[in-house]
Computed example of a mutant assay.
Amino acid sequence: MAKDGWHRLREEDAVTIARRLPVRFDLSVEASLPVSGPVSLTRVAHQVRQDMWRRLQGLRGFSPAVRVTQGDGRLTLRAGGSVEGALPGKACDALSELLDSPTHRARWLAHAARREHG
């Protein structure tokens, strides 16, 4: 585990961050975002994770996980995680709202944009 307490699983065009292994998505919502340039998948994943935690921190037994995959000029986000106990339907609604938020999407991509140095 990394010193910040998050597992980072890297693949060629994807990154998954999770508090616990193995990664479970008892709660899961997906969204797709267009991207026009290079972005840090890890930065996007952490931004989504932070905002998801703010929305769902009252969900008992919740352990967040986010997977970001890049391909064909798009990012596919899978956000959710494991839940010990009952899963309220409002959790999926809140998470869908977050992933569809134009304000959040713009902030995630701006934060994750790779900048040229020189």
Rank of each mutant, 00 (worst) to 15 (best):
M1E: 08
M1Q: 08
K3Q: 07
D4M: 07
G5C: 06
W6D: 08
H7E: 15
R8E: 14
R8A: 11
L9N: 06
R10G: 04
E11R: 14
E12N: 08
D13P: 03
A14P: 04
A14W: 10
V15T: 05
I17N: 14
A18Q: 05
R19K: 15
R19C: 11
L21M: 15
L21V: 14
P22C: 12
V23L: 05
V23R: 07
R24Y: 07
F25D: 05
F25E: 02
F25A: 06
D26H: 13
D26Y: 04
L27R: 01
S28H: 14
S28R: 15
V29I: 15
A31N: 12
S32T: 15
L33K: 09
V35Y: 01
V35M: 04
V35C: 04
V35D: 02
S36K: 10
V39G: 08
V39R: 12
L41P: 15
T42R: 02
T42N: 02
R43M: 14
V44R: 08
A45R: 10
H46K: 13
H46F: 15
Q47P: 00
Q47G: 11
Q47F: 04
Q47N: 03
Q50L: 10
Q50F: 11
D51Y: 04
W53V: 13
R54P: 03
R55E: 10
L56H: 00
Q57L: 02
R60E: 05
R60S: 09
R60N: 10
F62E: 00
F62W: 01
F62M: 00
S63W: 10
S63C: 10
S63R: 12
P64T: 01
A65N: 01
V66Y: 10
R67P: 01
V68P: 11
V68F: 13
T69G: 07
T69Y: 11
Q70S: 09
G71N: 03
G71F: 03
G71R: 07
G73C: 07
G73E: 06
R74L: 03
R74Y: 03
L75V: 02
L77G: 04
G81Q: 08
E84C: 06
E84L: 11
E84W: 06
L87I: 07
P88G: 02
P88Y: 02
G89A: 14
A91F: 00
S96E: 13
E97I: 03
D100C: 09
S101N: 15
T103G: 07
H104C: 08
H104R: 13
H104Y: 06
R105N: 04
R107A: 14
W108G: 07
A112Q: 06
A112M: 05
A113D: 03
R114T: 07
G118R: 04
